[in-house]
Amino acid sequence: MNVKVVIFDWDGTLVDSVEHIADSLHQAATDLGFPELEREAYRDIIGLGMVEALEKLYPGISRDRMNAIREGYARYFFSKVTTPQNVFDGMARVLADLRSSGRRCSVATGKSRRGLAKALDTSGLGVHFDITRCADETRSKPDPLMLEEILDFYRIDPSEAVMIGDTRYDLDMARRIGMPSIGVEWGVHKRDVLSAYEPAAVVSTVPELREVLGV
């Protein structure tokens, strides 16, 4: 793809963290007496900001109860540090090769700034990104505000960038502003869900992603 900027989702796209997020949400909520949900329910909200995720999981939840779940979630989630071993095999090399080819890299994620800042450091991936945007400092996916802010930073049009993600929220966000996207199948959603958002490609392996990106 002939683009200047490659924008990556984080959880489920660069880092193998989907099951840990689902486990942490489940534990935090059930500790407080919330009903246990199907595993797929916890996985399906990954990519949204935490407020939007909890409103979807538990419609009508009060702000106090939401804050209690968020506190519990943080305790469970941050008990495990993201390391280079949690990065999907080959993805660090993809980032390095994109930069070597003259393309720029950034992150658009549903994570909090606190969570992403820690993960950028401990994963070893932080050096690759010019700008990162998080749900708690802009708007949650699929609202495209975080993509618009990244485009403003680079002073480019949507057609000059591509969004890479594992969820329908990533691809929907890109589609709303006419940005090309690539879906990856090693995270939350599979080809049948991702294809509905008209991505340029859906890939199931890192070598396939390399081929589409031309690195």
Rank of each mutant, 00 (worst) to 15 (best):
R70L: 15
S140Y: 05
G102I: 00
I61Y: 10
G90I: 03
R139M: 13
K56V: 10
A29M: 12
H26C: 15
G49M: 06
P144W: 05
F78I: 04
L32T: 09
H128D: 06
E36L: 12
R70D: 08
R133L: 07
P142T: 01
V51G: 05
G90L: 03
S101D: 07
R39T: 14
A53R: 02
Q85P: 00
A119K: 01
N67C: 11
F153R: 06
G47T: 03
A41P: 05
E71T: 15
I131H: 06
D157Y: 07
M50C: 04
F88L: 00
M66R: 10
L37R: 11
T132G: 03
A29K: 10
G115T: 05
I164Q: 00
S106E: 05
I156E: 07
E55H: 14
R104S: 09
V162N: 01
E71G: 15
M66I: 02
L98T: 01
D166S: 00
R43V: 09
F34M: 12
R70S: 13
R168Y: 12
P142G: 02
V51D: 11
S159A: 14
P144C: 06
R43M: 12
R168G: 13
D157R: 12
V51Q: 09
D44Q: 13
R168D: 15
K141W: 02
V127F: 05
D121G: 02
A119F: 02
R70N: 14
A108R: 06
A119V: 07
L98D: 02
P158M: 00
I156P: 07
S79R: 15
C105N: 09
E55F: 14
M146A: 13
L151T: 05
V162R: 04
L25I: 11
V107R: 02
R139P: 06
L147M: 09
Q85W: 04
T122M: 07
L25G: 01
R133E: 12
R103C: 05
L125E: 00
S106V: 06
F88N: 00
R99L: 07
R114M: 13
D136S: 04
R99A: 01
L57E: 03
G110L: 06
Y73E: 05
R43G: 05
R65Y: 14
M66A: 04
D130P: 08
E55L: 07
F78P: 01
A53V: 06
R65T: 10
E52K: 10
A53M: 12
A68H: 14
E55C: 11
I131M: 12
L125H: 04
C105V: 05
F88E: 00
D64G: 08
E40Y: 05
V51P: 02
G165M: 06
A108M: 14
K111G: 01
F153P: 04
V51T: 11
V87E: 01
C134W: 00
Q27R: 15
G115K: 08
L147E: 12
S106P: 11
N67D: 15
D166F: 06
R43H: 14
E52Y: 04
Y42I: 08
A117F: 01
A68W: 08
V107D: 07
F34D: 08
D136L: 11
E137K: 09
P35V: 07
S140E: 01
F129T: 01
Y154F: 15
S140T: 13
R39M: 11
R99V: 03
V127A: 11
A41T: 08
A92F: 00
K111N: 06
L147Q: 12
Q27K: 13
G47V: 00
P142H: 02
S123L: 04
F129P: 06
F88Y: 12
